[in-house]
Design a protein around this nucleic acid. Structure first.
Lengths: 213, 213, 213, 213
DNA sequence: CTATAATCGAGACGGTACGTCACGTCTTGAT
DNA sequence: ATCAAGACGTGACGTACCGTCTCGATTATAG
């Protein structure tokens, strides 16, 4: 995303000089994520990251131009992974997706991803790449689930996918947020229960006259 | 919240020395909110706030103990307001609430409130007060709407209010987030449309076999 | 020389804000001279100076723009002092002056002054002030001695003072230089002997046909 | 002095790998002297030297262990040359020597030599070699001149040679120093005039009662 | 009317992290 | 084995901000 080795084979450089230490990227990103998790944004220090990764500051600054960039990529590379889902039914897909999301947002890396997403959204001048990555990774998922559901006739055709996406992602995010605000620690079972309720709601609604089964 | 004149609601503070300049609080809070909105947390500077408010740093530090406290109160005082809602029907209430929320999160102050909420949740050691304020302000709203709906028989009794709250708040928040990430500018009409879809979903669901009306 | 408090009463500032800590200048200059003496120019560190003076780096950088400036002033203020001389005879004056100079250049502060003088002369873009100070302090001394000597009829009138100054100052400087290069440690008596030989030479010369008495 | 090809004067260095590039030493030394002359010690950079010499850093560090060593040799090899002198009379020898010295110290390479000499003297822990070289090159000169003069009966026998050396070298050095401090540019004729005055002084003195001719 | 005292704008203070730069070392492929 | 290139760990540079402190000036009450 920032370091040259990612933008492959474009420049005139062909391996002149000492190559960049292969493991360095990973060590630094891991250290960054760990520091961020332990001390938060205000206590996130480049010196500490370098020290923890057993790496000089120059090695860090050769790869990322500044603190924001490092943190953003640390989160992008490890805080945006989401397994694909395909169970055969709409309810199954959505329940699986919601569970995955809840687990993701409750995990340190996932939560870090959330924070950086909001920071990025608040400072649009820097790093629009991250925004695109988020949209790419997460936007597709619900879209595909809905397409398959419509093909199977399980879903109202005309319903805007965006609203569904927002509700599910938003609910999972808020759930993770409130866990932290209230000092709760939700178990895996709690998350699954919450996921089922959420899916029940978006599938069949909460109004009494829509409760069919 | 932090400064004495607020905690001691006992009237016009009698003392010997020079009284605190009346307008200072407001000017500082406004400046803080503006700085935060423009530069984000990383670029939020006490010196800049004081300069922007045409105030000395001591005037700021006499009122708030540190940066977090000032920022928190700035956001609390202007980024957490939400009008009460009571239209007589569940659908009306929820639509009104969702519209209010969307407008709120799309506004600068509301968005700042969101950011601080996430920052606070990530650094639990400081300023739990803010977490309580958020829960207090926002938690009650949905609860009351649901209580009235249940009394009117409009809503499944057993449905957990939390899941509904999370879905609505989360959806509104994500909507504001994605507006910024994608560089959109949503009109008021857009927001109302989105609110109606959202409420339709949580009320009657998106499954084909639940579409009764 | 650099800090505002020296360029008195010119600016519009009239004591607004906290005044600069009075003792700070002295402490910092002393620390700088000590560090320079112990570690030399290559090992002369601003952090170390600040630490030794129990002072923050900002306090140093408020007064001097950079390392060169601090070092230059440290030396100027303590490495350029030279007692006035007036014994009544030319030989007495010159002997006294030469002894003083030898002692001065052999002392740590005096030697530091020599080094900075040469550094300054090599980088004329920075800090010509120092050059002027050196010329001012040292140039006058020999001039006055010679004027008195001419009035007393002890000295060839037409002889250029500059050549005399250069010989005496240069000899003293080289003597200190060679002491260090050779690892000698000259005693006070050594210095006085050297001073007498030097004065004998410039007064009566080394040629056999000029040895009158 | 440091690199193997110099210390082992045993001929054309037979080895297995690629021989060292012949012109490299000279290019690097020249670049070093130029950089030192332009930027002084504080701005003297190994990277800049290598870049200016169109050479990799390893090529430099294969030959000299560190910055000091390179600089010292650069100066030693080009900043210490001094032509031998033998005119047949003491006055002629000294005048010639003084003129040579003045020209030398006023030249860039000679001045660089002066600076390094002082730097070396201030950091005795490193590079005593340089000190020895200076003493070797410059010390002998005056000694021989004086020996011949004594043999010819032109000079007081008992006069210590050191004092004379110091006076002449010091005067020349100070003259070059003051030219730079005052921003003068001395012509060749100026230097010769100064040399004559200097020699007149050390030969016959400045006292009125010693002026014989 | 004077003394006392809290607050004001300004800005210096001791610290700490920033992002840059140079050191001297190391590692590559090419000569 | 040496070359040019350039990444490496280290550590100082000079800047900016934190939260504290000190100043003279202002503005109220208390005596």
């Amino acid at each position: 995303m920032f370091n040259r080795s990612m933008t492959t084979g474009e420049g005139p450089r062909r391996g002149r000089g000492r190559p960049r230490t292969p493991g360095a990227e990973g060590k630094i990103l891991a250290a960054a994520l760990a520091e961020y998790g332990e001390h938060g944004w205000a206590g996130f220090t480049m010196d500490a990251v370098a020290r923890r990764a057993h790496v000089g500051k120059s090695t860090v600054y050769l790869r990322w131009p500044d603190k924001d960039a490092l943190l953003t990529e640390a989160v992008t590379s490890r805080g945006l992974e989401l397994a694909a889902v395909d169970t055969g039914t709409l309810e199954g897909d959505l329940t699986q997706l919601a569970t995955n999301l809840l687990r993701h947002f409750h995990s340190p890396a996932g939560w870090a991803g959330v924070r950086v997403t909001f920071d990025t959204a608040s400072a649009p001048e820097r790093l629009g790449n991250f925004a695109e990555a988020v949209i790419e990774v997460h936007g597709r998922q619900v879209e595909q689930i809905c397409r398959r559901a419509v093909e199977r006739g399980e879903m109202i055709e005309s319903f805007p996918v965006g609203a569904l996406t927002e509700a599910i992602y938003g609910a999972a995010m808020i759930n993770a947020l409130s866990e932290r605000l209230e000092g709760r620690v939700d178990s895996d079972a709690d998350l699954e229960t919450r996921a089922r309720y959420l899916v029940a709601m978006v599938l069949r609604g909460i109004a009494t006259d829509s409760a069919v089964s």
